[in-house]
Simulated scan of single mutants.
Amino acid sequence: MADYIHELRTLVGHRPLILNTAAGALLDDQNRLLLQERADTGDWSFPGGYMEFGASFAETCQREYLEDAGLEVEPVRLIKLFDKDFYTYPNGDQTQLITALYLVRQTGGQLLDHVTDETVQVKYFPLDDLPPLFNDQSVKMAQAVIDDVRAHV
Protein backbone atom coordinates (compact mmCIF):
# COMPACT_ATOMS: atom_id res chain seq x y z
CA MET A 1 0.00 0.00 0.00
CA ALA A 2 2.67 2.47 0.99
CA ASP A 3 4.39 1.71 -2.30
CA TYR A 4 1.18 2.43 -4.25
CA ILE A 5 0.65 5.79 -2.53
CA HIS A 6 4.37 6.58 -2.77
CA GLU A 7 4.32 5.82 -6.49
CA LEU A 8 1.30 8.10 -6.99
CA ARG A 9 2.99 10.88 -5.03
CA THR A 10 6.15 10.64 -7.16
CA LEU A 11 3.92 11.30 -10.18
CA VAL A 12 1.70 14.07 -8.77
CA GLY A 13 3.76 15.57 -5.95
CA HIS A 14 1.64 17.24 -3.26
CA ARG A 15 -1.35 17.88 -5.57
CA PRO A 16 -4.76 16.87 -4.23
CA LEU A 17 -5.64 13.18 -4.44
CA ILE A 18 -8.91 11.44 -3.62
CA LEU A 19 -7.93 8.47 -1.44
CA ASN A 20 -10.07 5.68 -0.04
CA THR A 21 -9.55 4.60 3.56
CA ALA A 22 -11.25 2.34 6.07
CA ALA A 23 -11.26 2.37 9.84
CA GLY A 24 -12.80 0.40 12.67
CA ALA A 25 -14.50 1.31 15.91
CA LEU A 26 -13.90 -1.32 18.59
CA LEU A 27 -15.73 -0.93 21.88
CA ASP A 28 -14.97 -2.90 25.02
CA ASP A 29 -17.60 -4.15 27.48
CA GLN A 30 -17.64 -0.70 29.14
CA ASN A 31 -18.29 1.04 25.78
CA ARG A 32 -14.78 2.49 25.76
CA LEU A 33 -13.37 3.15 22.29
CA LEU A 34 -9.98 1.80 21.18
CA LEU A 35 -7.81 4.50 19.61
CA GLN A 36 -4.30 4.58 18.16
CA GLU A 37 -1.74 7.23 19.07
CA ARG A 38 -0.21 8.14 15.72
CA ALA A 39 3.57 8.14 15.36
CA ASP A 40 3.49 10.89 12.71
CA THR A 41 1.51 13.58 14.57
CA GLY A 42 1.12 12.38 18.16
CA ASP A 43 -2.64 12.74 17.88
CA TRP A 44 -5.11 9.90 18.28
CA SER A 45 -7.18 8.26 15.57
CA PHE A 46 -9.12 5.16 14.72
CA PRO A 47 -7.01 2.21 13.61
CA GLY A 48 -7.30 2.28 9.85
CA GLY A 49 -5.63 3.42 6.70
CA TYR A 50 -5.40 3.58 2.94
CA MET A 51 -7.02 1.02 0.68
CA GLU A 52 -4.69 -1.07 -1.44
CA PHE A 53 -5.46 -1.55 -5.12
CA GLY A 54 -7.94 -4.43 -5.45
CA ALA A 55 -9.03 -4.47 -1.78
CA SER A 56 -12.48 -3.77 -0.37
CA PHE A 57 -13.26 -1.33 2.42
CA ALA A 58 -13.88 -4.26 4.81
CA GLU A 59 -10.59 -5.97 3.87
CA THR A 60 -8.75 -2.69 4.32
CA CYS A 61 -10.27 -2.24 7.77
CA GLN A 62 -9.17 -5.73 8.81
CA ARG A 63 -5.61 -5.35 7.45
CA GLU A 64 -5.09 -1.92 8.94
CA TYR A 65 -6.51 -2.92 12.32
CA LEU A 66 -4.02 -5.76 12.56
CA GLU A 67 -1.14 -3.46 11.54
CA ASP A 68 -2.15 -0.51 13.74
CA ALA A 69 -3.55 -2.24 16.82
CA GLY A 70 -2.37 -5.88 16.70
CA LEU A 71 -5.93 -7.18 16.63
CA GLU A 72 -7.81 -9.35 14.19
CA VAL A 73 -11.27 -7.89 13.70
CA GLU A 74 -14.41 -8.56 11.75
CA PRO A 75 -16.61 -5.73 10.51
CA VAL A 76 -20.06 -5.98 12.11
CA ARG A 77 -21.71 -3.14 10.19
CA LEU A 78 -20.91 0.09 8.42
CA ILE A 79 -21.46 2.99 10.82
CA LYS A 80 -21.01 5.70 8.22
CA LEU A 81 -19.23 6.63 5.01
CA PHE A 82 -17.36 9.94 5.21
CA ASP A 83 -16.84 11.39 1.74
CA LYS A 84 -16.20 15.10 1.96
CA ASP A 85 -13.26 15.61 4.29
CA PHE A 86 -9.98 17.21 3.31
CA TYR A 87 -6.60 17.00 4.97
CA THR A 88 -3.13 18.35 4.23
CA TYR A 89 -0.40 16.23 5.79
CA PRO A 90 2.59 17.91 7.46
CA ASN A 91 4.70 17.15 4.36
CA GLY A 92 2.21 19.07 2.15
CA ASP A 93 0.35 16.12 0.60
CA GLN A 94 -3.26 17.19 -0.02
CA THR A 95 -6.06 14.64 0.21
CA GLN A 96 -9.79 14.18 0.09
CA LEU A 97 -10.32 11.16 2.32
CA ILE A 98 -13.21 8.83 1.54
CA THR A 99 -13.46 6.71 4.70
CA ALA A 100 -15.69 3.78 5.55
CA LEU A 101 -16.06 3.51 9.34
CA TYR A 102 -17.10 0.08 10.59
CA LEU A 103 -18.19 -1.14 13.96
CA VAL A 104 -15.86 -4.11 14.45
CA ARG A 105 -15.56 -7.02 16.85
CA GLN A 106 -12.31 -8.64 17.88
CA THR A 107 -11.75 -12.17 16.58
CA GLY A 108 -8.11 -12.65 17.60
CA GLY A 109 -4.73 -11.10 18.15
CA GLN A 110 -3.38 -9.12 21.08
CA LEU A 111 -3.25 -5.38 21.68
CA LEU A 112 -0.08 -3.91 20.25
CA ASP A 113 2.44 -3.50 23.07
CA HIS A 114 5.33 -1.87 21.21
CA VAL A 115 5.98 1.19 19.06
CA THR A 116 5.77 0.75 15.26
CA ASP A 117 6.28 3.07 12.28
CA GLU A 118 2.64 4.17 12.57
CA THR A 119 1.60 3.53 16.18
CA VAL A 120 3.01 4.78 19.47
CA GLN A 121 0.36 3.02 21.54
CA VAL A 122 -3.25 1.85 21.52
CA LYS A 123 -5.61 2.53 24.38
CA TYR A 124 -9.30 2.42 25.29
CA PHE A 125 -11.03 5.72 26.13
CA PRO A 126 -14.47 6.52 27.57
CA LEU A 127 -16.64 8.08 24.87
CA ASP A 128 -17.09 11.19 27.01
CA ASP A 129 -13.34 11.63 27.58
CA LEU A 130 -11.56 11.21 24.23
CA PRO A 131 -8.00 12.50 23.68
CA PRO A 132 -7.04 15.09 21.01
CA LEU A 133 -8.03 13.55 17.68
CA PHE A 134 -6.01 13.56 14.44
CA ASN A 135 -8.21 15.67 12.16
CA ASP A 136 -11.76 16.90 11.56
CA GLN A 137 -12.76 13.58 10.03
CA SER A 138 -11.61 11.73 13.16
CA VAL A 139 -13.76 14.08 15.26
CA LYS A 140 -16.77 13.39 13.01
CA MET A 141 -16.07 9.66 13.21
CA ALA A 142 -15.99 9.77 17.02
CA GLN A 143 -19.34 11.57 17.04
CA ALA A 144 -20.77 8.95 14.66
CA VAL A 145 -19.68 6.20 17.09
CA ILE A 146 -21.25 8.05 20.03
CA ASP A 147 -24.49 8.47 18.05
CA ASP A 148 -24.40 4.80 17.02
CA VAL A 149 -23.93 3.64 20.61
CA ARG A 150 -26.86 5.81 21.76
CA ALA A 151 -29.07 4.48 18.96
CA HIS A 152 -28.32 0.85 19.84
CA VAL A 153 -28.67 1.00 23.65
Rank of each mutant, 00 (worst) to 15 (best):
T10G: 06
L11K: 15
H14L: 14
H14N: 15
P16K: 14
L17I: 13
L17M: 15
L17R: 12
I18K: 15
I18H: 13
L19G: 02
N20M: 09
T21G: 09
A22S: 14
A22L: 04
A22H: 02
A23F: 06
G24T: 00
G24E: 00
A25D: 02
L26H: 04
L27Y: 00
D29F: 13
D29N: 15
D29V: 15
Q30K: 15
Q30G: 11
Q30P: 06
L33W: 06
L33M: 08
L33H: 04
L35P: 03
L35Q: 04
Q36P: 02
E37L: 14
E37T: 03
E37Q: 15
G42T: 04
D43K: 13
W44E: 06
W44Q: 08
W44Y: 15
W44M: 11
S45R: 14
F46N: 03
F46H: 03
P47F: 00
P47H: 00
P47S: 00
G49L: 02
G49A: 02
Y50W: 13
Y50A: 12
M51L: 12
E52D: 12
E52W: 08
E52L: 12
F53D: 12
G54Y: 04
S56G: 10
F57H: 10
A58F: 04
A58R: 11
E59H: 09
T60E: 01
T60N: 03
R63H: 10
E64V: 02
E64W: 11
E64S: 09
E64T: 05
A69N: 02
G70K: 04
L71P: 00
L71H: 00
L71C: 01
E74Q: 11
V76H: 03
V76I: 13
V76K: 09
R77P: 03
L78A: 07
I79Q: 04
I79H: 07
I79W: 07
I79D: 00
I79K: 09
K80I: 12
D83N: 14
K84G: 11
D85N: 09
D85V: 02
F86S: 08
T88D: 08
T88K: 10
Y89N: 09
Y89L: 15
Y89T: 14
P90G: 08
N91T: 05
Q94I: 12
L97M: 08
I98D: 02
T99Q: 10
A100V: 07
A100L: 06
L101M: 10
L101T: 07
L101F: 09
Y102G: 06
L103G: 01
L103K: 13
L103R: 14
L103M: 12
L103H: 12
V104W: 03
V104H: 05
V104I: 10
V104K: 04
R105T: 05
T107N: 03
G109L: 07
Q110E: 15
L111N: 04
L111D: 01
L111S: 03
L112A: 06
L112V: 10
